[in-house]
Simulated scan of single mutants.
Amino acid sequence: MAMVLQMSTFLHQYLYSAAHIVPIEKKSPMLIRFGVLGSSAMINPAAIIHPVETHNECVIAAFASRDIKDAEKAVEAYGQGVAKAYGSYEQLLADESIDVVYIPLPNGLHYEWASKALDAGKHVLLEKPFTSNAEQARKLVAKAEEKNLILLEGFHWQFHPAAHALKAKITSGKYGKILRSESWMTTPAGSIPKSDIRWKFDLAGGALMDMTYVVSSTRYFLSAGTPTSVVSAKSRPLKTDPRVDSAMEAELAYNLDQGQVKSKIVADMDRPNLAFVLPRMWELPSIEIETERAVFYYYNFMMPHLYHYISITDKKTGKTTYEKHYQDNSAWSQQGEAWWSTYRWQLHAFVDKMRGREPLHWVTGQSSIDQMETIDAIYTKAGLPLRP
């Protein structure tokens, strides 16, 4: 289902950005210049190209690929007449005009190239998962802090108004203490070819790595760092490489100020079809949080700009109410537009940070370290090796 979401958001971004492109001549004269490592990454149009097209303070100034032809194709498709094509990542990093490097490379290359970008004096927008393991995460955050450079892990979904509307309810105290949570994300069996990089152990593949959103959503809504313990973790190993998890299910225990909370996470990158033939297309990434007085359910927290709903069930009356938040009167939503995707909200925050303005939300370096420490702990509990 994640693949369907990704394709849907590509279409969404194409349609909306086409109607809201800011011509280069109308953009700010003091542009933030982005360089993209990995010109042919499938995520590029939705995650960076279309959001940048609609922002008046930034531009994509370069694409780099290990094949210059791929970079040239990306420049031609971008079409704003300002981007260069580079036939190596090193050449782009050597370009002194580049301010920020966006990295959508395979998981196992995140640390290497983010580190090299920081060494080159570039700010970094890094796709999730942050690194291959927690040790790399700690080193990367330390380097960014030492060099006073911006480093952001691209958990785009956290920047959407719906996520903040739900968290505000949970933390308001109106519904009592959090008791438990359950987050899940699945992809129908056979939808990801076995040749895909997400199945490669040496490239830090696996369901928990690719579907790291289940850990991110749990930690975000619980306002938690690392779990006190991983109570249980069970993987369904890939048949051709048992080091790689095609699915992971775990129970995490958090000792919060309000007491202990048990959290279940399910990541399945090869979800068996119903009756062997029917893909579970309705299983969008979702999270349920139970408090003393209510049960919250956030459907499609990963791509809420496409469609989402938040249900709130009162445990005393049994009554369920529903909400959607694309734009409202909150301070958060007043800064954006209802058609903005999660990636466009994320870019808005990144540019604010670059300009010295206070973003309304940020994924801190410590949060990214906590994220990778949690993933490492789950792999260890499941008896799988950490990603190299």
Rank of each mutant, 00 (worst) to 15 (best):
T9L: 11
Y14C: 14
L15W: 12
A19I: 14
I21C: 05
M30T: 15
L31Q: 11
I32L: 09
R33T: 11
N44S: 08
I48G: 06
P51K: 11
E53R: 15
N56L: 11
K73W: 11
V75R: 15
G79I: 02
S88E: 07
A94E: 15
I98Y: 00
N107V: 04
L109Q: 12
D119C: 02
A120M: 01
K122E: 06
H123L: 03
L125E: 03
P129D: 02
F130C: 00
T131F: 00
T131N: 00
A134K: 00
Q136M: 08
K143R: 12
N148F: 05
L149G: 11
P161C: 02
A163Q: 02
A165E: 14
I170R: 03
I170V: 12
S172N: 09
K174P: 01
K174G: 03
Y175E: 07
Y175F: 08
Y175S: 02
G176I: 00
R180H: 10
R180V: 00
R180E: 10
S183G: 07
W184L: 05
T186W: 02
T186G: 06
P188N: 07
S191R: 08
S195E: 08
D202M: 06
G206I: 05
L208D: 03
L208P: 00
M209Y: 07
T212K: 01
V215D: 04
L222A: 10
P227D: 11
V231N: 03
K234L: 07
S235I: 05
P237Y: 04
P237I: 03
P237M: 03
K239C: 12
D241I: 04
P242C: 12
S246H: 13
S246E: 15
A247W: 02
E249C: 09
E251A: 13
N255K: 10
Q258Y: 10
K262L: 15
K264F: 13
A267V: 07
A267Y: 00
N273T: 07
L278G: 12
R280S: 14
E283S: 02
S286W: 01
I289G: 08
V295Q: 12
L306Q: 02
L306E: 06
I310Q: 05
I310W: 00
I312F: 09
D314H: 09
T317K: 10
E323H: 13
E323L: 01
D328G: 14
N329C: 07
S330K: 10
G336P: 03
W340A: 10
H348D: 13
A349R: 07
A349C: 15
A349F: 06
P359L: 04
L360K: 11
W362C: 02
V363N: 02
S367F: 13
D370G: 06
T374H: 03
A382S: 06
L384T: 01
R387P: 01
R387C: 10
R387S: 11
